[in-house]
Design a protein around this nucleic acid. Sequence first.
DNA 1: AAGATACTTGTTGTATACAATTCTCAGGAT
DNA 2: ATCCTGAGAATTGTATACAACAAGTATCTT
Lengths: 224, 224
Amino acid sequence: MAQESLKDKVYGSLRLDILTRKIPGGTRITESAIASDLQVSRTPVREALLKLCQDKLITAIPRAGYIVEDLSDSDIQDLFSTRMEIEKIAVRLAVQYISVDELKMLDDNLEGTRAAIKSEDTEKMADLDMAFHEMVHKAARSKTLFRICRNLSEVSMKYRHGLYLVKELWNDALQHHIAIYQALIAREPDQAMAAVEVHARQAGIHLSDTMKRVRSDTFSMDSL
Amino acid sequence: MAQESLKDKVYGSLRLDILTRKIPGGTRITESAIASDLQVSRTPVREALLKLCQDKLITAIPRAGYIVEDLSDSDIQDLFSTRMEIEKIAVRLAVQYISVDELKMLDDNLEGTRAAIKSEDTEKMADLDMAFHEMVHKAARSKTLFRICRNLSEVSMKYRHGLYLVKELWNDALQHHIAIYQALIAREPDQAMAAVEVHARQAGIHLSDTMKRVRSDTFSMDSL
DNA sequence: AAGATACTTGTTGTATACAATTCTCAGGAT
DNA sequence: ATCCTGAGAATTGTATACAACAAGTATCTT
């Protein structure tokens, strides 16, 4: 990744702040205020806000500003359960279409994950986890589905990040990935969907804890 | 709707041109060219292109322009089959959560549809069809799923519009809606999902015909 | 005092100017 | 002939200026 545009930085910064409720729901925000906060012009801010509108994280009021949408705990749960349902579709298709080469890549990914766990490399762990799921999504051979999956992953990644810090869960995650991998090799759609459900459910279980922690923390990430 | 912003006009115009392949896939487009074409400044054009990027109808090449994505027939089929899978999830949830009030509204919708068929009111038919599906989506009680469904509906609507002109299909569509409605009343998830699949499959069957017609037509809608 | 009206202020919508980067293509070396 | 190289053209990224509109406020009228 050569360089992130200002627009993307602003977008990421705002999305994180909204998702973690550093900016609570109902807050009215304006382009100029954010622009001066982050020391950039209104243009990249405007583009970031536009994107947030499409994500339904904020609502635009024509010529009068924007309002931060209220994200309840159940909304977050909704996000995760929907993601699970759609990932189940993806893995069902992946069972059908995945190639031996791709299975080999998944195997390599699992091997790498074992190493990451052994060396306690959080960064690597997160990357491999994301890569594993992306490979499965791609194997579903559906551009539309892939796009939806990635979008949901992006939005939920902020929350999942907390999970990576809980090292006890790493081995569980690995076992789940192995289960998914084996179901794919065996070409067993139901087994694969069940494995995905187990995997996603664990994330959901630890979600409320993560949320509590996130909300009690006072974030100091003004690092644009 | 008080007034459409220039950004929305540009977006609508470009999306239609891409979807109908008036601007074929692979075409390279630039902000300034479109701006001078439509006699507006680069700013609203830029915002429209940004939105099209998110729709995956075009791809941005940093500091070098945009390329219109190639929408093959299989891509369109992919869009529709994915939409079907996700609608099946939605209807399964709707079976669980839909209220009697909402069922009554669906019933009213069916009644209206019968009238629209009798009076051959294409406009009304399209509106009622969209409303029917939106009600089902809403009954799933998932904001995330609702957003995904609406997004997919919007993108595929351009294609579906051709279907409304084939009056022979109207009765089939009504029968499908009735089947979905009855499955919802009976609270039978499998039956509901099957009904949705039948409904979606018919759209898919007639899709390639519609595509051919759309492509052979020479569109002349330079009406910004 | 109450209501209407004009004015001021705040905010987005749009246009344009400048900066940074990438692409293109001619020209020459090998 | 083919592959580098470099200057300039093309294009987006960013900043800023201005216009249009909305909302709140103070003043004027009754």
